[in-house]
Design a protein around this nucleic acid. Structure first.
Lengths: 204, 204
DNA sequence: TTTTGATTTAACCAACTGGTCAAAAATAAA
DNA sequence: TTTATTTTTGACCAGTTGGTTAAATCAAAA
């Protein structure tokens, strides 16, 4: 068995599947479309990943675990809160801007199959304790006002994710379908979201 | 033609279709499932709405135009900003809590077919000018800090919608899959989201 | 009662979809 | 080279899906 060729085909499949699944979702994706995008035969697709479900699970797990841990490392840094938040928001919005279908994909599929989501989360060892502890430390230090740290995290995520997920709506309602204007709007939010959050939680 | 019977069947279909489409989305929904839920024959379903697409468009239009205008009336009231915002957030989160699949449904489908979304928005005459004008008036009056009013609106929507759309994730990560705890969390947010926003935009 | 038109149904169909299989091609081992 | 193993392919299949049709049922008008 040629490892190089095998790895190559498998990688081509994973890339193709990721593209198709993220855009169309589990129900909308077609095995034939994935095979086409990978430039291979449909039978070969089934040779590598026996079923659509197995392939989908592989992709969902991959995508999901690519996003969260990377951002955790940022939280762990020793920078002041303002900087950490700024970096997080900027990196995150940037990532989503480059993958505009990612938010709806994850949101839709986590609602379609919450059990599988639970399995992944438990398996990946990702838990938000660290982030929560960080916010609590800042509260103890009197730097930010007292509130449920979970609200802070959810708020940051909502402020970053929603504007991308609702991109088409915003583009039409606010910018008369001018995509460049929408893009600039999102670009600005890399700064304004941080300001908005800090303005709300910081004690002056 | 018996109007009563016709209306009744059509209404049964619309209700059933709304349930199925909102939960499964366009791709995941099955005409047979809709017929079953409506308690009728599949042929009858096609008799009332010739194609799946026509039925879906009817539902999407209906759902979409049910949500936005209702909330506009709230904005038009002469109450102070704090009250208006409080009412809006509370009503909106409450609506979403009762229809947890609504956010992902609309987000997913608006991304699947942005052209149709544009058509609906143009048709419904809904535009956010009024809300933007309202925020600008408050800025002129020195009540809230100067910023892009579109950001304020998007932020409020994101803070309200995202926690419902990401319900499964939050339930697992923050509440060890305890649905009641998640529900209480969302309940609390009816107040805390308003506080969070006011804290950020109000000039003290 | 008969007739007319709308409503409802069971049976059916063609296209699509995920998945299989046996054989061919390519690669590695002997 | 020959043999064994893995990778790739084209043809195929069974189940599903959206949609059709002709006939049956029903309600109201004549």
């Amino acid at each position: 068995m040629n490892d190089l060729k095998k790895d190559n085909t498998e990688e081509k499949i994973l890339n193709a599947a990721q593209n198709v699944f993220i855009e169309k979702g589990m129900d909308g994706a077609r095995m034939q479309a994935i095979a086409d995008e990978a430039g291979i035969n449909k039978a070969l697709l089934h040779y590598y990943f026996r079923t659509k479900e197995k392939l989908f699970n592989a992709i969902f797990t991959k995508v999901f675990s690519q996003i969260f841990p990377n951002l955790m490392t940022m939280v762990r840094s020793e920078r002041p809160l303002e900087e950490k938040l700024g970096m997080f928001v900027e990196t995150y919005i940037d990532l989503l801007q480059k993958n505009p279908f990612l938010p709806t994909f994850i949101l839709k599929e986590m609602n379609r199959n919450p059990d599988f989501l639970a399995k992944i989360i438990k398996g990946s060892g990702v838990n938000p304790t660290e982030v929560i502890a960080m916010f609590e430390k800042e509260m103890d230090a009197g730097k930010i006002r007292r509130m449920d740290p979970r609200d802070i995290l959810v708020n940051i995520l909502g402020l970053s994710i929603f504007p991308i997920a609702a991109g088409p709506l915003i583009t039409i309602m606010f910018f008369e379908n001018d995509k460049a204007a929408y893009k600039a709007f999102i670009e600005r939010r890399k700064k304004t979201v941080t300001e908005f959050v800090l303005n709300s939680i910081l004690i002056k």
